[in-house]
């Protein structure tokens, strides 16, 4: 059964863009504590451009939808989240094969692996991986347990949020925040916060699709 088609992925991207726009100031505030205070603005600019690109060049091909998002983010974000989210969508696009929950989970896992490779980071470094990794695990587990995709995405969103919250006491080991050393502890990582929105957007946009 095809539940993850181009329209569903477009809805996911639009919902992510909406959440990023809505929480733009919160993301930037988190980034001003430990980074260079541009995460909300950068990602909002990138996702607004991605939604516009999908409107200009809509596609029935799910992989093409993800590719358009990737290249748009790479081009328009400017900061580190451009190549990182861009690589996430690029690898997800290259892996997506089929329209069921397992295909989506494999694509998200490939995206996660791409971010690991691009950022040379791992879980616990206080990055977006701390939200994305638990989300991929929860999604795989729920699908393996026979849960429906929307329920599995709900579990993934919950795992992402827990992972995001767990970044607060961590000391940053990557990016501008790593210059702060111990002083980076006590703040939630902005990348983990935006990555949680990405997973929450998937749960919302694909709700009721089985």
């Amino acid at each position: 059964m095809t539940v993850v088609d181009a329209a569903a992925l477009t809805a996911w991207v639009r919902e992510f863009a909406r959440l990023v726009h809505e929480q733009r100031d919160t993301l930037t505030q988190l980034d001003s504590a430990i980074g260079d205070a541009d995460h909300g603005a950068n990602l909002d600019r990138g996702m607004t451009a991605a939604v516009a690109a999908l409107e200009t060049t809509p596609s029935d091909d799910p992989a093409a939808v993800l590719k358009t998002v990737a290249t748009t983010l790479i081009k328009t974000v400017g900061g580190a989240s451009g190549p990182l989210y861009g690589t996430f969508f690029l690898r997800a696009s290259g892996t997506l094969d089929g329209g069921d929950g397992a295909a989506l989970a494999a694509a998200l896992r490939a995206g996660y692996d791409g971010v690991v490779a691009r950022g040379k980071a791992e879980r616990g470094d206080k990055t977006m991986l701390d939200a994305l990794g638990p989300a991929c695990d929860a999604l795989d587990e729920a699908l393996a347990a026979g849960k429906a995709l929307d329920e599995a995405l709900g579990a993934a969103a919950e795992a992402a949020a827990q992972g995001r919250d767990a970044t607060e006491p961590l000391v940053a080991r990557k990016g501008r925040a790593s210059y702060l050393g111990e002083r980076s502890a006590g703040h939630v990582d902005p990348g983990a916060a935006s990555a949680t929105l990405l997973v929450e957007a998937a749960a919302t946009a694909l709700a009721g699709r089985g």
Partner: peptide, 11 residues
């Protein structure tokens, strides 16, 4: 970046 501000663009 694309708007002439600070940033990098892989394309």
């Amino acid at each position: 970046d694309v708007d002439g501000g600070l940033g990098t663009d892989a394309t």
